[in-house]
Design a protein around this nucleic acid. Structure first.
Lengths: 211, 211
DNA sequence: GAGCATACATACATGTATGTAGGTTTCCAG
DNA sequence: CTGGAAACCTACATACATGTATGTATGCTC
C-alpha cells in the first residue's frame, strides 16, 4: 500500500536503481583509487558493491562510461564540498588556504585517488576519459589561477612565477601531499597548508591557522 | 684483428647486448611514464627501441623483470645524480634544498613519471614490483627524515609535524609539482624549491636561491 | 672458415577481461 | 493475481597481451 496517495507513491523501483548505481559508483571510485583504470576489473567492482557484472552493464554502458560517471560525480562533490569554501573569504590568499585544507579533508575518503590515477593514465591522451579529465582540470586551474592573480593584485599574495604555472604546481603539490599522507589526520591538513604557503609564497609563519 | 692483444679484445658482442639492453630500458621507462604498467604493451616497447619482443624476452625474463630493472636503474641514477647533491652542504636545510632542485632537474627527462605510475599501481600491493618500490621509497624516506631531524636539532629547520610525515609530504609534494609542470623549465625548479620551503617551514623569503 | 654461442625474429598457445545475449527474479499496474 | 517491464544474473563470444617455442642471423673461438 502506498502511504502517500500523491503522484509519486515513493517508487521503490527507482530507489532500488539509484541505490545500485550509487553503490557501483562508490566501488568504482575506490577501485580506481587503488588499482587505476587499466587494472580495474569490473567483476571486482561489481562484487565490491554487492552485485555482478550484469548489474553494472545494466547501469552503465561499459567501463569507459563508468569512469566518466565517476569523474562527473567527483567533480560535483568537490565543487560543492571544497570549492564552496573559497567563497566569502576575506582575501584570495585566505580562499586558497581554505581550499587547501578543504581538499585535504575531502581526500580523506578513499575516493581521493580516483582523479589522480585517471589523470596520470589519461591526461593528454586522445581518449574520452582523458578529454573529460583535462577539461575538468583546466577549469579548476583557471579558477585557481584567477584567485592567485587576484591575490597578487590585492596584495595578499606576493609575486612569483606566472599564475598558471603556480596554480598548476600548487594543485600538483596538494595532490602529492594528500596522496603521500593518505588521509593521516591531522598532519595531512597541516602539511597541505604548508605546501600551499610555500608554493604561493604566503607567510610561512607557523601561526596562520588553527581554524 | 683484435687491436689490443690483452685479455679483453674489446668484445663487440657484449657491447651490442648492452646497447640493446639500454635502449630497451629507456623505452620501457618512457612507456611506463606515459602508459603505466598495465597499459604498457611490450611489443610497443620493443618497437620503440628498434627491436622486437624477441629481443626483449632475451634480455629480460618478462614484463615484471623489465619493470624491476627500470626501477633499479632509476634508483641508481637518482642517488648518483640527485642524492649526491646533499653531501657536503653547509646545513641540512641546504641539503634538502639542493635535493629539491636536483630532483626537479632530474625529472625533466621523460623517465620521471615511471616511478610515479609504478608507485600508484603497485604501492602497498603484495607484488614484487610493489615491494621493491616500497623498499626504495622507504629508504629514501628514512634518509630525508634523518636530514629533517638533523636540521631541526641544528636549528636550520624549524619544528613541525613528525619528521617522517614531513618527509613523506615533502616527497609527495615534489612528485606532484614536477608531474604537474612536466619539466617546464625554469619554473619547475623554482616551484619545487618553494614547495620544499613551505613543507619544511624554511624561510619563504624570495631571496634564498639562485644557486 | 668450421663449429658454436649469443642476439634477435617469428609463430603459436594460454589466460584473462570486456562486451553481449538469453534467462530469472523483483516490482508495479490494472 | 496476472501481465509486463524493469533490475539483475549466468553463459558465451571476442579481443588482446603475455609468455613460450622454434627458427634465423650475427659474431666469437679455434
Amino acid at each position: 500500500m502506498t502511504p502517500a496517495a500523491a503522484k509519486r507513491p515513493r517508487s521503490t523501483q527507482a530507489e532500488r536503481s539509484a541505490r545500485s548505481r550509487s553503490a557501483l559508483l562508490e566501488a568504482a571510485a575506490r577501485g580506481l583509487s587503488r588499482h587505476g583504470y587499466a587494472n580495474l576489473v569490473l567483476e571486482d567492482v561489481a562484487r565490491d558493491a554487492g552485485y555482478t557484472r550484469g548489474a553494472l552493464y545494466h547501469q552503465f554502458k561499459g567501463k569507459e562510461d563508468l569512469a566518466l560517471a565517476v569523474l562527473e560525480w567527483v567533480d560535483e562533490t568537490w565543487w560543492s564540498e571544497v570549492g564552496a569554501l573559497a567563497e566569502g573569504q576575506p582575501s584570495a590568499a585566505a580562499g586558497l588556504r581554505a581550499l587547501a585544507r578543504g581538499h585535504a579533508v575531502y581526500c580523506r575518503r578513499d575516493i581521493a585517488g580516483a582523479m589522480m590515477t585517471l589523470r596520470i593514465e589519461f591526461s593528454g591522451k586522445d581518449h574520452p576519459v582523458g578529454r573529460t579529465i583535462d577539461g575538468n582540470v583546466k577549469i579548476l586551474l583557471k579558477y585557481c589561477a584567477q584567485l592567485i592573480e587576484a591575490g597578487r593584485t590585492e596584495g595578499s599574495i606576493p609575486p612569483g612565477p606566472p599564475a598558471i604555472e603556480a596554480a598548476s604546481a600548487w594543485l600538483g603539490a596538494m595532490e602529492g601531499v594528500v596522496m603521500a599522507l593518505a588521509g593521516r589526520a591531522p598532519h595531512d591538513e597541516e602539511l597541505v597548508a604548508r605546501a600551499t604557503a610555500g608554493v604561493l609564497g604566503l607567510d610561512g609563519s607557523l601561526a596562520q591557522q588553527q581554524e
